[in-house]
């Protein structure tokens, strides 16, 4: 798989007096993958996200995004055209008073012809299932809808990669589902690489790869099943494992072995069926 982003021995601190938030971080991201980054508050995950598209520059070490060094000022614009960002608060990232104007903001700034902008805005709104809201006022939308507008704004720039810093933290369960389904669709149908920073384990379960950060370093990295098999390690870092898996562990202690590290309710039921069939 193609490497799109490369952290090489990266350290970062917000000021000279303060302790480093990231310490000698080595981390790569790959094309077409849905990667989830987990970690408690202060683990350095948001800082890491902002280093990807040159919002921050490393104190030492290098970040290479799409072959370009983020520390070089002339790379800033090409990098940001490749990598779009979505932040936590839906109310802080909408600039226009009509949904379609907001999505058009990026392409307009690229100086594209009108027809091309029209085409991109329509496509982007359809991709996030918000096309029928194109003439609405953003402030009357729900949090999940606003976040999908923010994502459409990124897609309209035809970016290859989208980085989201806790985009669902302020949403209700329905809004969270809408955003995560949208991200999965972007990855599967449009081949967009997704890097999702989150606190929610049930979102991480849906990723191709999970990276767990603690104290500015990567401490676990693998598929969701691999990462969540380290239950006690995760708990020691203040993170939890998905409840179906926790239940499977508890049952195992009582001699009931549910196979296959179930991360979701459906997987648990499959494992349970297997167990009963083998016994029956």
């Amino acid at each position: 798989m193609n490497k799109i982003i490369e952290f090489k021995n990266v350290s970062f601190s917000y000021s000279e007096e303060e302790e480093a938030v990231l310490q000698n971080l080595d981390l790569d991201f790959y094309e077409g993958q849905f990667t989830c980054v987990l970690g408690h508050n202060g683990s350095g995950k948001s800082t890491m996200a902002k280093l990807i598209n040159a919002l921050y520059i490393p104190t030492s070490g290098t970040v290479i995004s799409y072959g370009l060094d983020t520390a070089d000022e002339k790379n800033e614009i090409p990098i940001r055209r490749n990598i779009g960002m979505v932040f936590q608060n839906p109310d802080n990232q909408i600039v226009a008073t009509i949904v379609e104007d907001d999505v058009a903001f990026g392409p307009e700034n690229l100086g594209l012809p009108r027809d091309e902008i029209r085409k991109r805005v329509d496509e982007a709104l359809k991709a996030v299932n918000m096309y029928e809201y194109r003439y609405h006022e953003p402030h009357r939308l729900s949090g999940g809808q606003k976040q999908r507008i923010a994502i459409a704004g990124v897609i309209a720039m035809k970016t290859n990669c989208i980085v989201l810093d806790e985009p669902t933290a302020m949403l209700d369960p329905k809004g969270r589902r809408e955003v995560i389904e949208t991200l999965l669709k972007l990855k599967n149908e449009y081949g967009i690489s997704v890097i999702l920073v989150t606190h929610f384990m049930d979102e991480a379960v849906k990723a191709d790869r999970v990276v767990v950060m603690n104290d500015g370093k990567v401490c676990l990295d693998g598929t969701p099943a691999q990462v969540f098999s380290n239950a006690s390690h995760l708990e020691s870092m203040g993170l939890t494992v998905p409840k179906p898996l926790e239940l499977a562990y508890q049952l195992q202690k009582n001699g009931v072995r549910i196979n296959g590290e179930p991360l979701t309710a459906a997987e648990f039921v499959d494992g349970f069926k297997n167990y009963v069939e083998n016994r029956g």
Partner: peptide, 18 residues
């Protein structure tokens, strides 16, 4: 009602369906 049920509750609902 469009609410999330606790994860363990969904396990039980799915077990019942199975």
């Amino acid at each position: 009602l469009g609410l999330d049920v606790p994860e363990i509750t969904s396990v039980f609902i799915e077990l019942k369906n199975a």
